[in-house]
Write a protein that binds this DNA or RNA. Structure first.
Lengths: 95, 95
DNA sequence: GAACTAGGTCACTAGGTCAA
DNA sequence: TTGACCTAGTGACCTAGTTC
């Protein structure tokens, strides 16, 4: 998963700290805690919960299914957001 | 099923040891001791204690009341968890 | 004294709520 | 549909009491 995310300022993928704030592994927003197995923000927590509760099937990504999920655009593509949630390890059993 | 636990690691039902660790008879997690009459983990111990203290009536299982209780999903169905606690022999006076 | 467990504590999170 | 906020339930840890 978190393959060296090229320089940047530390990429959300590999990092979970920004100073002393824990960041959401999905979108990089401030994490509100450890949810479903990963540090996540309220938004991604709720999004993932809804996704598994209702077994939602999101409309496929219109681009290349590789949308870069960030706080500001996380609601742009549900398909890729859920994909990212799973990729970073979110699961019902908080594995 | 019972009987020969065929290879596997020996079904939680009949076994209490996994190597040299005693396992919780309810969920298979690591037991923290002998509680209410059976080897149980801190989680199931606390769950059972609360259940008998407050005489809680859990909402009936939405499935077939035969949920397979395991460490990762033990919080999924309280009804079946308590059922399992009783089934394996937990009781207030640690009979 | 050591070894043990019933019951208490409380930081933490899953899931619910509902205004936006 | 989202996500900030809320609450009830969970479980790791602690303490008091019991037994050897």
């Amino acid at each position: 998963m978190n393959t060296t995310t090229m320089g940047k300022e530390a990429s959300l993928d590999g990092l979970e700290f920004d100073g002393d704030t824990v960041l959401c592994r999905v979108c990089g927003d401030k994490a509100s805690g450890f949810h479903y197995g990963v540090h996540a923000c309220e938004g991604c927590k709720g999004f993932f919960r809804r996704s598994i509760q209702q077994k939602i099937q999101y409309r496929p990504c219109l681009k290349n299914q590789q949308c870069n999920i960030m706080r500001v655009n996380r609601n742009r593509c549900q398909y890729c957001r859920l994909k990212k949630c799973i990729a970073v390890g979110m699961s019902r059993d908080g594995t």
